[in-house]
């Protein structure tokens, strides 16, 4: 006999009740997805073009104000969107509470760290170019 044998179905269905949250996350995920619809094609097109030249050409391209701004926006939208998506994957696939909590925190830290790294790299090129 398991410890759950006397739990009623209603108790299970009600669980801890509604968290009264989730809508904000839903909106954020959709809005970041809309941004990425425009930013990702621009990013892919630009990267393919940048690959045709050498590293100096790529730095000159990244130092142009609009390119730098769009690069930072792309990274921001992508890592923001990725954090939400990865959170769902972790919640679905990791059973142990401790491991799950640790991975959820790591997910947030990793996405923020990746964004800061990209943003600072672009700013360094931009500022370094003296624009």
């Amino acid at each position: 006999m398991s410890s759950h044998d006397f739990i009623t179905p209603a108790k299970m269905a009600r669980g801890l009740g509604s968290a009264k949250s989730g809508t904000e996350t839903h909106i954020r995920q959709r809005v970041s997805a809309i941004a990425l619809i425009f930013l990702v094609p621009w990013f892919v097109y630009s990267i393919i073009n940048a690959m045709s030249g050498d590293i100096v050409d790529a730095q000159v391209w990244a130092a142009k104000p609009w390119n730098a701004i769009l690069l930072i926006l792309t990274a921001g939208a992508a890592f923001f969107h990725m954090r939400i998506g990865m959170q769902v994957v972790i919640e679905d696939y990791i059973a142990k509470t401790g491991t799950k909590s640790a991975l959820l925190i790591l997910n947030s830290f990793a996405c923020i760290a990746l964004f800061v790294t990209v943003a600072l790299s672009v700013l360094k090129i931009w500022i370094g170019a003296g624009v």
Binding site: S18, A19, K20, S21, G22, T23, T25, H26, V88, E91
Partner: peptide, 14 residues
């Protein structure tokens, strides 16, 4: 809507 607003009860639909 209050009873449904939850990351699992509703938003687990992908």
């Amino acid at each position: 809507l209050d009873d449904l607003e939850d990351p699992f009860k509703l938003y687990r639909c992908h």
